[in-house]
């Protein structure tokens, strides 16, 4: 059982990595949350009956773990740090995309826990129905909340003096 589990985690660890990056501000907290998610997944693994995909079940456990995780560092993100870097000269397309992602990650830190979950599931390509199922809310509620979160995210990024 342990080997099967580890194999599945190895296959899907990018999900956990991105999720911890979304929820935590610094490297140490990210590592801790990553470890916590693996631990909780392992603890809940006996209840996984294989009726859904491993990744579907994993999203749910990992998200719930992130929601109840107690941050060690509660500092607010320093959004101004990135705006300074904007003045640098010309960007290649790749650099620009990396910059956009960096701005996105910084902006996401200002969202609440549920908004982070919504945007994460959206970026993972989940439909409104799937998002609703993962979070245990109605499809309509998921749609409304996701749209509001997108608007909020756009506003935050604009306030940082950036747009894409």
């Amino acid at each position: 059982m342990e080997q099967d589990f580890l194999k599945q985690i190895e296959l899907h660890k990018a999900i956990l990595f991105k999720l911890s990056k979304l929820y935590m501000d610094n490297e140490v907290d990210r590592e801790d949350l990553f470890q916590e998610m693996v631990f909780q997944l392992w603890r809940s693994y006996p209840s996984f009956q294989g009726k859904s995909l491993f990744s579907t079940w994993m999203y749910r456990v990992a998200l719930n773990t992130s929601l109840v995780y107690v941050k060690k560092d509660k500092c607010r993100p320093k959004v101004e740090e990135l705006t300074d870097r904007l003045d640098a000269v010309v960007y290649s397309d790749h650099q620009q995309k990396e910059e956009q992602l960096a701005y996105f990650y910084t902006a996401v830190k200002s969202l609440n826990e549920i908004e982070k979950a919504l945007i994460f599931l959206f970026l993972e390509g989940q439909s409104h129905r799937e998002i609703a199922m993962q979070l245990g809310i109605s499809e309509g509620n998921a749609r409304v909340k996701l749209n509001r979160t997108k608007d909020k995210l756009q506003d935050i990024i604009k306030k940082q003096g950036y747009e894409f």
């Binding site: 801790d32 916590e36 631990f39 995780y69 107690v70």
Partner: peptide, 9 residues
């Protein structure tokens, strides 16, 4: 897979 001290609520 085993944590000495879990840090969730």
């Amino acid at each position: 897979l085993e944590l000495k001290r879990s840090n969730n609520a």
